[in-house]
């Protein structure tokens, strides 16, 4: 048990392992990004992808790659990174491996905000209405969650508050669909809610990116405080961190990152649960280091899932959010079983 490691070799080993992890994640993102560019109804040979990406002409390959597949791949990486990062930050804040934007109701509240924007025609007035409404919904929901959960929330309280929030927002979305005067519009909302990256343009990227960046900066800066929070709220405070500021940063950061993602891709669940959980042992369970790792891991996993839906031999393209839910929900169940066995 007591491994004898000299300080010198330990110092060598750890930064090397960390570099390896981040290099591996970066490589995975790059490879999956290129595969994503190569996939679609039109077959484009591997050797033609890069020329088409940088071509300044209107050749069919250049248009397909630049206007259809590139936005899809970029959004996959951005939304995935937002979900992974938010999941890691929420788990660090709540010191609970079951926290996730979808489970605690942030995603569905963002979706409700977006539906309101769509339903009442705000989205038609300005494209900015969609992310702004989605982010507002997410902020509101997270504040309600914290109010419900209280100062030192346990697993059960968080999950129950999340279930209550998700049910409420789900019901309100159903009301919007139910009362929609135009059946076509309600069908559109339903499909959009399932979560997808198909048929997105570069405009969607520009719409979401600024909000996501704000969220990412807020969340990534929480690293040292989340590390300190490992030792409890008082110890974190004794190390000079303000818990109120930390909570606010995580709430607002998550709402911006996830809200902007939901606005352009619909609700995609479980990335924020699965990714931090898989990567946590690889970063030595350090919540701060887990933030950038989960952002990169989330980007890779969502790119992979989006490749997956295109490879599935279904008649209509499988929705991305449906796939992540199908894979993520059983994962969540196993996690609950493990949590019941061990205290953490």
């Amino acid at each position: 048990m007591d491994s004898i490691v000299t300080p010198a070799s330990a110092a060598l080993r750890r930064p090397a392992a960390r570099t390896l992890l981040f290099a591996g994640l970066g490589l995975a993102i790059a490879v999956l990004f290129v595969i994503s560019l190569g996939l679609g109804t039109v077959h484009i040979p591997a050797g033609r992808i890069f020329p088409a990406l940088v071509a300044a002409d209107d050749s069919p390959f250049a248009i397909i790659i630049q206007e259809i597949r590139l936005p899809r791949a970029i959004l996959g990486a951005l939304v995935g990174a937002s979900l992974g990062l938010s999941g890691a930050a929420l788990q660090g804040l709540l010191r609970n491996p079951l926290a996730e934007p979808a489970i605690i109701g942030t995603s569905s509240s963002a979706a409700l905000g977006a539906v309101v924007a769509l339903y009442y025609g705000f989205a038609a007035l300005t494209p900015l209405a969609l992310p702004i409404f989605a982010i507002s919904g997410a902020v509101l929901a997270t504040l309600v969650l914290f109010a419900l959960a209280g100062r030192d929330p346990g697993v059960l309280t968080i999950i129950l508050a999340g279930v209550a929030l998700s049910s409420l927002t789900g019901a309100l979305i159903s009301v919007a669909i139910n009362l929609s005067p135009d059946p076509h519009a309600s069908l559109e909302i339903v499909f959009w809610l399932l979560g997808s990256l198909a048929e997105r343009s570069i405009d969607h990227v520009w719409l979401a990116l600024p909000f996501m960046l704000v969220g990412w900066v807020l969340l990534l800066r929480c690293g040292p405080a989340l590390d300190a929070l490992t030792l409890g709220e008082e110890t974190a405070a004794s190390l000079g961190f303000s818990l109120q500021r930390l909570r606010l940063a995580v709430v607002v950061g998550t709402a911006f990152a996830v809200g902007a993602g939901v606005a352009v891709s619909g609700a995609i669940g479980f990335i924020g649960l699965v990714v931090p959980h898989l990567l946590r042992p690889l970063v030595g369970h350090r919540p701060g280091l887990l933030l950038p790792a989960s952002a990169m891991g989330g980007a890779a996993l969502l790119l992979a899932a989006d490749i997956g839906v295109r490879l599935m031999p279904t008649h209509a393209e499988f929705k991305l959010g449906v796939l992540t839910a199908l894979l993520g929900a059983p994962f969540f169940l196993v996690l609950i079983l493990n949590t019941r066995r061990r205290p953490l």
Binding site: G232, T235, S238, R286, L344
Partner: peptide
């Protein structure tokens, strides 16, 4: 702090 809590299995 009293009880010296720790929430994640960090080294």
């Amino acid at each position: 702090a009293q009880g010296a809590p720790c929430f994640w299995p960090m080294t």
